[in-house]
Lab assay of single mutants.
Amino acid sequence: ENVVSAPMPGKVLRVLVRVGDRVRVGQGLLVLEAMKMENEIPSPRDGVVKRILVKEGEIDDTGQPLIELG
């Protein structure tokens, strides 16, 4: 899985990584606010952040691509 998608609709509060960062499975990639709760979205695998497809403050839909890993 190279693309991390939104598991729920919500607002992107914080992006915790930058392009080029090495990430490990379970590491937080970004924080979504949904139903007044903050949810940290973890990396599904080890890899390198290739692209960040959303910006802080954006509203996303379920299934929307958020981050691409390489």
Rank of each mutant, 00 (worst) to 15 (best):
G47N: 02
V54R: 04
V3K: 06
V23Q: 00
P42S: 11
L16A: 03
I67G: 01
E1K: 12
P44A: 04
Q64T: 14
L29C: 06
V17G: 00
V31P: 01
L13E: 06
S43C: 09
G57F: 06
G10S: 05
P7A: 08
P65K: 07
P44S: 05
A6P: 04
V17K: 00
G20Q: 03
A6H: 03
V12G: 01
E58I: 11
L13W: 00
R18D: 11
P7L: 08
K55T: 13
V25T: 12
R22T: 12
V17F: 00
G70N: 11
A34I: 14
G10A: 06
R51H: 09
D60E: 15
L16Q: 04
V48A: 04
G28Q: 05
G47Y: 00
G20F: 03
P65A: 11
R14A: 08
V4L: 06
R45F: 13
I41E: 02
R22D: 09
D60G: 15
I67W: 03
P65C: 07
L29K: 01
R51I: 08
E38W: 08
I52D: 01
E68K: 04
E68L: 13
V4G: 03
V3A: 07
I41D: 01
P7E: 06
E40P: 07
Q27H: 05
L32W: 10
L32R: 00
P7I: 07
G20K: 02
V19L: 08
T62F: 13
Q27K: 04
S43I: 03
E56H: 08
G26M: 05
V19H: 04
D46Y: 08
R22L: 13
V23N: 00
G57L: 06
E56I: 14
L13K: 11
R45N: 07
A6T: 06
K50A: 10
M8C: 12
R14V: 09
V19D: 04
R24I: 12
P65I: 11
V23F: 02
M35Y: 12
P44M: 05
E38F: 08
R18S: 13
V31H: 02
G47W: 02
I52C: 03
P65T: 08
V3E: 06
A6S: 11
E33L: 14
A34T: 13
G63D: 09
N39L: 15
R51Q: 10
V15T: 03
E38I: 11
G10W: 00
I67Y: 02
E56D: 09
V54Y: 04
M37P: 03
L16W: 00
K36Y: 13
N2G: 11
S5Q: 11
V48E: 06
R24V: 13
Q64P: 04
L66Y: 04
A6Y: 07
V15K: 01
E68H: 08
D61L: 13
E33Y: 14
K55N: 11
L66A: 03
G70W: 15
E38N: 08
E40F: 11
V15M: 06
G63K: 07
R14T: 06
V54M: 06
V23K: 00
L30G: 01
G57S: 05
E33M: 10
M37Y: 08
E1W: 12
E68R: 04
V49Y: 00
R18W: 03
R18Q: 13
V19I: 10
Q64E: 10
V25Q: 13
P65E: 07
Q64F: 10
L16R: 03
M37G: 12
R18H: 11
G28I: 15
M8N: 08
G26K: 04
L53S: 03
V48I: 13
G70A: 14
L66R: 02
V3Y: 14
G20H: 06
E33Q: 09
T62A: 14
D21N: 04
E58W: 14
P7W: 07
E38A: 10
R18G: 10
G57K: 04
D46L: 04
P7M: 08
M8S: 10
G57N: 07
E58S: 10
I59H: 12
A6E: 02
E33I: 10
V54W: 06
R51C: 10
V31M: 04
V48R: 07
T62P: 10
V25W: 08
P42E: 08
L29T: 02
E68A: 07
E1R: 10
E56R: 08
G57Q: 07
